[in-house]
Nucleic acid binder design. Structure first.
Lengths: 227, 227
DNA sequence: CCAGTATGCGTATCTGATACGCAAAGTGGA
DNA sequence: TCCACTTTGCGTATCAGATACGCATACTGG
C-alpha cells in the first residue's frame, strides 16, 4: 500500500477481499493435467475451479497458497510459486475479490477427495475467470521450462532421460529429438547420473536425478547481450 | 475468492486490504532512475516510497495503478504492467495490506510536485518493503528487455541507434558493442528507419522509430526447443 | 583544410542448435 | 539358442546467431 495521502484510512473501506487460487499441474500419460474442484456455493456452483480461498489476516500469500493446496491435495509436496494477480471488478459475481494466483507443480497427479484431474489441452468450462488463470499458468510454465530447471518439480527423484523428455514434450506440446535433448540437458550440468539403471522391455536406461531440486535460473550463467 | 467451502463468507473478515504500488522507471544521463515520493503518514513518515495506495471497490488493479501513477506523475503516458504481489503480514506496520506492484516505464524522468528521481543503482533507504519491490522491478525489466521490444517505452518516438543503445546499457548495466548492437537490433525488424537524421557535433545519425509501440514477445518467433 | 570523433558497414570466428547416422544392450519369440 | 526388434547411447555434419574487431564515411571545429 504505502502512503494514504488524503485517501481513506487504512482500516476503512476494506471492501476488496484477498484470496489465492492455486493451479496444480502434473504430467500424466505424456500430457499436462490440472487439478480442479467443484464450486459449492454461489452462482457458479457445480462448475469446476482451481483450489483456493481467502487469505487470513496473519498469514502470508505464500502460506495461504500452501494451505489451500494442502487442504485439497494433502501431502502433495509441490513446488509453489506466485503466478499473477487477477482483480477485475466483475470476476467474482458475489463480491469484489482480488485473487493472487499460484502455480503448483507436482511430480504425479495424486488422487484426493473431490479433486478431478483434467488434461490441460481440453479443460472444461471453468468457473469465474479461471480459464484465463489456466492460460497464464501454462504459458508461464512453458516459458520457465526453457530457461530454468523447473522440470525437477514435475518428475520423481530419479528418472531416465526418456522420462524427462516426456515431461518437456508434455509441457511444450511438441516432440523433441531424443539425441539432441540428451546432449542439451546433459551439457547444462543440472543432472547427476546414478549407478543404477531402469530395466524395461529393451536396453536398460541409466537413471539420473537433479543435482539441485530448487529453482535455478539458467539465463544468469549465459549472459545475453541482445539489443 | 473461489469456493468458500466452510470458510468465512465473502463479505466477512475483510481484514486484508488491497493496494497497488507503482515503480516508475526512466533513463536519465545514461542511468536508470526511479521516481519516489515521501511517505506522509505513519511510522515510515519522511522515508521515500513508490507512489501507490488503496484499490477502489469498482476499479480494476490496472486502473488503480494508472490512477496512482497519474496522481503523482500526471500526463506521463507510461507503459504500465503488473509486476508481482507482495503480501507479507508485517510489510506495513499499520495494518495488513497486500500490494500489487506495477512497473511503469517512462520515456523521460518527468518532473512533478513531490516526486524525487533517484538512480536505481544507489537508492536511498526506502519505506516498507519497497527495496524488495525495486529489486524485483529492475530484475524484471532486465529480463524482459532481452526478449521483448519493451525498450520502446523507455525512449522517445524517434531516436538514433546510439540513443537506443544507451537505454539498453543503462538497464543492463554494462557496455555493448556498437556494431553488434546495430546488427542485432536491425535484424529483429522492429525498427523503421526515417528519412531524417540527427545532427550533433560529428557525423549525423539516422533516426529510427519503433514499428510497433506496444509489447511484443520475440521468443514466440524463434521457438526454442531446449531440453 | 586537417585533426578528431561518431556513424555505418563488413568479415572472421566461435558457440550453440538442429538434422540425422549408427553402434550397443537389452527382451521376447521362433 | 539365436535372431528380429526396440530403445539407449554416442558421434558427425551443417546451419544460425553471437561475438570480436577492422575500417571507410561524414560530419564539426579549430
Amino acid at each position: 500500500m504505502t502512503q494514504l495521502s488524503g485517501e481513506a484510512a487504512a482500516h476503512r473501506d476494506a471492501t476488496v477481499g484477498v484470496a489465492v487460487d492455486v493451479v496444480p499441474l502434473a504430467i500424466d500419460d505424456g500430457r499436462l493435467h490440472a487439478a480442479l474442484v467443484p464450486v459449492v456455493n454461489g452462482r457458479e456452483r457445480g462448475r469446476l475451479a482451481f483450489p483456493g480461498g481467502r487469505v487470513r489476516e496473519s498469514e502470508s500469500l505464500d502460506a495461504a497458497a500452501g494451505r489451500w493446496l494442502e487442504r485439497h491435495l494433502p501431502g502433495s509436496d509441490a513446488h509453489v510459486e506466485q503466478l499473477y494477480t487477477f482483480g477485475e471488478p466483475g470476476r467474482d459475481p458475489a463480491s469484489r475479490v482480488v485473487s493472487v494466483a499460484y502455480l503448483a507443480l507436482l511430480a504425479r497427479p495424486m488422487a484426493a477427495p473431490g479433486i478431478v484431474w483434467h488434461p490441460c489441452d481440453a479443460l472444461p468450462h471453468l468457473a469465474y475467470d479461471h480459464a484465463a488463470i489456466a492460460r497464464v499458468a501454462i504459458e508461464r510454465l512453458r516459458g520457465k521450462l526453457a530457461y530454468t530447471n523447473l522440470a525437477f518439480a514435475l518428475i520423481g527423484r530419479t528418472f531416465t532421460l526418456a522420462e524427462l523428455q516426456q515431461v518437456y514434450e508434455a509441457v511444450l506440446g511438441r516432440p523433441l529429438d531424443r539425441r539432441n535433448f540428451r546432449k542439451r540437458v546433459l551439457s547444462l550440468g543440472l543432472l547427476t547420473p546414478l549407478a543404477e539403471t531402469r530395466h524395461g522391455a529393451h536396453r536398460p536406461a541409466r537413471l539420473y536425478r537433479f543435482a539441485v531440486r530448487r529453482p535455478i535460473d539458467l539465463a544468469m550463467a549465459g549472459e545475453r547481450t541482445h539489443g
